[in-house]
Amino acid sequence: MANENLRDAIKTMMVESLMLKVTKEEIRDDMPLFGPEGLGLDSIDALELVVGLEKHFGVKVPNSDAAKQALATVNSLHDYVVANRP
């Protein structure tokens, strides 16, 4: 999967599984996912993203340290998937 396609797939997964009220085009690659400055996700979205990463990309997030590293931006999600893909 080419990198841009993977980023796109991650955004599609986010919009659908997190029920975001924005389109995937509105999500920038370097936009913080959590907090008011970014996409405004919360801890439940984080849990859902962990489920989504496994379901859609076969990638496990084993602990909260890994989660912190992976779930920062679309770019960090992308890098995490690339590094941990089976």
């Binding site: 599984s17 997190l18 029920m19 439940i44 979205d45 849990l47 859902e48 489920v51 496994e54 379901k55």
Partner: peptide
């Protein structure tokens, strides 16, 4: 159970 959505449950 692994596929259960934590976002839907609440």
């Amino acid at each position: 159970a692994g596929a259960a959505s934590p976002l839907l449950f609440p």
